[in-house]
């Protein structure tokens, strides 16, 4: 099987003793778009931070494109962080350089790219999120939706094996939310999307995982999971008013 991401038996407790993950096992095929759903405190962020080796030290393994995440091997870790592109929730955390262009260049430059190759990579990434004309703007002079798109570009510029998005639709107005969805659908890349926005998951991700209480509680086609009222209620997941997944699946 051609897997972008394999997680097996992953368990983790924070230094203060709070156990966040109790043996998570799953895998994501190359090119798949998967939503990671779950209530607050289910361990979603903890799982994300394991994918690129920022958190470690518990049990279990994570493999990205066949390569094990091993935090003690600095060189391998750099490659892992190229392969796993994490887009954080607050674009102000992600965009720390003076201009959008420099921010997008930060990742590939850390990979050793320079000169024309670097420029091309930056242009291309900004092009893919439709932000090429704003390359020389300072992040604080972009709208929130534009900043989120640049944040996606910063990660795309590293040509990741898998794109991990933490709450991509949060704080976006409906138009920006739709624009981002169009951009994400146009990308030819594996996506793992952490979200509370269930209609967004239904729109973008054919498959969903429900993480609850530190384990994968369900794994299946998004619309089927969303239509399972009992399952949803058991994991504090609720559909917004008026959203009927059955209508979308045509059942």
């Amino acid at each position: 099987m051609d897997a972008s991401l394999e997680v097996s038996g992953l368990a983790y407790a924070y230094p203060d003793g709070t156990q966040a993950l109790f043996g998570v096992t799953t895998s994501v095929r190359r090119g798949e778009r998967v939503a990671l759903l779950g209530p607050n405190g289910a361990g979603k962020t903890t799982l994300v931070l394991h994918l690129n080796g920022i958190l470690h030290g518990g049990a279990g393994t994570v493999r990205v494109g066949g390569m094990p995440v091993d935090p003690s091997d600095k060189k391998a870790l750099k490659e892992i962080r190229r392969r796993v592109g994490v887009v954080f929730q607050d674009p102000d955390d992600q965009l720390f350089m003076p201009t959008a262009r420099e921010d997008v260049a930060f990742g590939p430059a850390n990979l050793g790219l320079r000169g024309a190759a670097l420029e091309r990579r930056v242009e291309e990434a900004l092009e893919r999120v439709g932000m090429a004309e704003f390359a020389d703007r300072a992040p604080q002079h972009l709208s929130f939706g534009q900043r989120r798109r640049v944040a996606v570009a910063t990660v795309l510029a590293m040509e990741p094996e898998i794109l991990v998005l933490d709450e991509p639709s949060s704080n976006l107005d409906p138009a920006s939310r739709r624009e981002l969805a169009e951009i994400l659908l146009s990308l030819d890349v594996t996506i793992l999307m952490v979200t509370h926005d269930l209609p967004y998951a239904a729109q973008l991700c054919p498959r969903s995982l429900i993480l609850s209480g530190g384990v994968i509680a369900a794994d299946g086609p998004t619309l089927e999971l969303l239509a399972d009222a009992e399952l949803m209620a058991a994991h504090r997941l609720e559909l917004p008013f008026g959203f009927i997944p059955q209508a979308l699946s045509g059942a």
Binding site: V84, D93, F106, A109, N110, T154
Partner: peptide, 18 residues
Amino acid sequence: RVHLAMLSRGYDGAMPVL
């Protein structure tokens, strides 16, 4: 959080000269 974001994009203590 910014530091996490930097680490995630391969920061190793030195800013790349752009």
